[in-house]
Design a protein around this nucleic acid. Sequence first.
DNA 1: CCGCGCTGAAGCGTATACATAAGTGGGGGA
DNA 2: TCCCCCACTTATGTATACGCTTCAGCGCGG
Lengths: 221, 221
Amino acid sequence: MRASERAYQELREEILDGVLAPGTALAEVEQANRLGVSRTPVREALARLEADGLATAASARVLQVSELSPASIVALYELREALEEQAARLAATRRDPARFAELHERLTAAPQLLDDGDEGLRTYYDTVDALDGEIDAATANPMLVSALRSARLHSARVRRLARHNPERLRAAASEHLLIVEAIIAGDASLAAHASHVHLHMSLRHALASIESRQSDGHRVA
Amino acid sequence: MRASERAYQELREEILDGVLAPGTALAEVEQANRLGVSRTPVREALARLEADGLATAASARVLQVSELSPASIVALYELREALEEQAARLAATRRDPARFAELHERLTAAPQLLDDGDEGLRTYYDTVDALDGEIDAATANPMLVSALRSARLHSARVRRLARHNPERLRAAASEHLLIVEAIIAGDASLAAHASHVHLHMSLRHALASIESRQSDGHRVA
DNA sequence: CCGCGCTGAAGCGTATACATAAGTGGGGGA
DNA sequence: TCCCCCACTTATGTATACGCTTCAGCGCGG
């Protein structure tokens, strides 16, 4: 694999996982030494991170991991609303019902996974990610998909910040189920509205979760 | 200005203006010689163009100016629909009425500009761009704005491809006017629907215009 | 005492040199 | 004569070196 690609993925993972906390400075030489590659691929990686919005230029000379304030989370969800409602609408119009029928089964089984500990949780998230993938494929719109991908990057950060609340995840599964049913039925309007509802609930939970975490005195997971 | 920045802007302009036609290969050495800079800044410029979607990797070794097929134009408008409706909604909620009142005046005067030849046309487009800017500012959502900016890049290509039809531009001005009025009135729903209508009409015109151009035997403007 | 300017250093942007991989053309063998 | 393999060419990926910009700290002048 290309060194620039490895550097990018490594840095991205670390930012998403919170290893590199918001506000951390990303200097070329430092990261080049740390990652064991030269500055040129690091430069490319940092440029991509900035384009992704995961890093922000604090001044002309210093790049840092971008903050994840409640305000920016709200902004993220406003963007996701726009994109995911449209994606759901298009998917409902253009979907292959068979592919979503399979997802319907998996999602129906999903809540039970949450009793299976860490392994089950991973399978649960795999199912949710598979739903994203199927919707992407069904929209048949590369531009929309690429915008969605960018938004999901940031969602991954939020997901990690919010506590994994089994109760919330069970509710989320049933919200997802409704979206899938709407898509299978070819009901674009319902698919869009169900997506809206899901995002609304998800945002509400994320904000509450982060607020409670902060009042815990910034406890680190 | 930085060499990589100049290279990027130069290449972007040439792609948007059609100087570099879709399908043209973008080789590092060739462009470096042509633009009078070294390969490194060209590399960065090409990476940005690819991230923008203005260039596509045809194979592992060859990057080329991306195609602008009717299908991709439809996809672009589906994305813009999602983004601009949401932006209009948010702008209607958060706007400063005074700033849009000024735009309302300028847009009312816009149709007359179209009789003033090239200079007037430029002023007309400046007004439309100002509307975009005001909406961006009013949404108060950096993520949404950055997604919009990316979509507008591609719109600029489409705009150039479509013939400048005064009749269509006059209609577009009145569509914009309705959007502005809705924003001033704080009517989020109307702002979104008016944006949808505008995009629908704009897409219809763009597709018809391109089709007629192609049946002209690919006449170059 | 405050503000402007200088000087040093550190980091970034660019160029160039080198390594590597892929594609192509030619030659040899079947 | 055709096909396959090897070598060469070319372009990309990576590393390093150099020069310039910028920022911080200190000193001098008002």
